[in-house]
Computed example of a mutant assay.
Amino acid sequence: MKYLSFDIEATGLEEHDLIIEFAMVPFCAKEKQINYNLKKHFYIKCPSFESLRPKLNQWVIDHNKELIEKAHSSGIEIAAFKQELINYFESDEVKEYFEGKKITLFGKSMSAIDLPFLNRDLGWDFMRKYFNHRQLDLSCVAYALVDMDKIPAECESGSKLMSFLNMGEVAHTALEDAVNTAKMYLKLMEIVKGQS
């Protein structure tokens, strides 16, 4: 199957938090290929770090100040971001890649912020127009493989899974995380096939 691996970075995990970075890259599980030609990355405009600071959790303050400042200074407004996505999904290259079908989203821990934030900011109609109502979540795949004793129990953590797969550290940048999530899935497929 073909998937659109995506990742967002946000100002936190709460309902009021904002998307500040978004990236996506299609890949084909059958061919085991990531289509880097169709990758996209955006910073999404947000208020300044100092104005957001009172509502930010400490991890975000410690680790994402630079990213928030980048989104604030050079990000595009959410309406422009939505239009960029429409242009992308309506392009001949993307339609051809996904064979005119609705796109199946792929990511990690998508139910935490990714899907709720996208539904909120892009709208229900947009999400239903372009995306399949089913998704594939790497975290769920990892849980299942842990339960089946295919990978160690600590691999339920994304960082531990990356370490187990000899892929280094989690980047916490949207594009690198979108690419690495797809790579992890392809590597897990090989592990399972090798154990069959």
Rank of each mutant, 00 (worst) to 15 (best):
I78W: 12
S157T: 01
N132Y: 14
M24F: 06
L115F: 15
Q135F: 13
A10T: 15
A29R: 11
L145I: 14
S73H: 14
F49M: 07
S163G: 05
K187C: 15
Y43I: 14
E84M: 10
G168R: 07
V60W: 11
L136H: 02
R128W: 13
M184C: 10
I103D: 04
C28H: 06
P26N: 04
M1E: 04
N64R: 03
K45W: 01
L118W: 13
K108I: 10
S111N: 13
N35Q: 10
L122S: 09
K82Y: 06
R128L: 14
L145N: 13
E69P: 05
E99D: 04
Q83C: 05
N57D: 15
N57A: 12
E93H: 05
H133P: 00
N119C: 08
I20H: 05
E93A: 14
V192N: 09
I191G: 12
E96L: 01
H172W: 10
L105T: 04
T11Q: 00
K39G: 13
L105E: 01
A10L: 07
A71W: 12
S159T: 15
E90Q: 11
M162V: 11
A79L: 10
I191L: 14
D149T: 03
E77I: 10
E169L: 10
C140I: 13
C155S: 07
S111F: 06
Q33G: 01
S196N: 15
P47D: 13
M24E: 00
G158N: 13
K102S: 06
L4N: 06
Y3A: 02
K82E: 04
I113V: 14
I86A: 05
L67D: 13
K30N: 08
K2W: 01
I151P: 07
A144R: 03
C28Q: 00
D177M: 14
L186G: 06
S163P: 00
M1N: 02
E99S: 06
E9N: 05
E21M: 07
A29F: 13
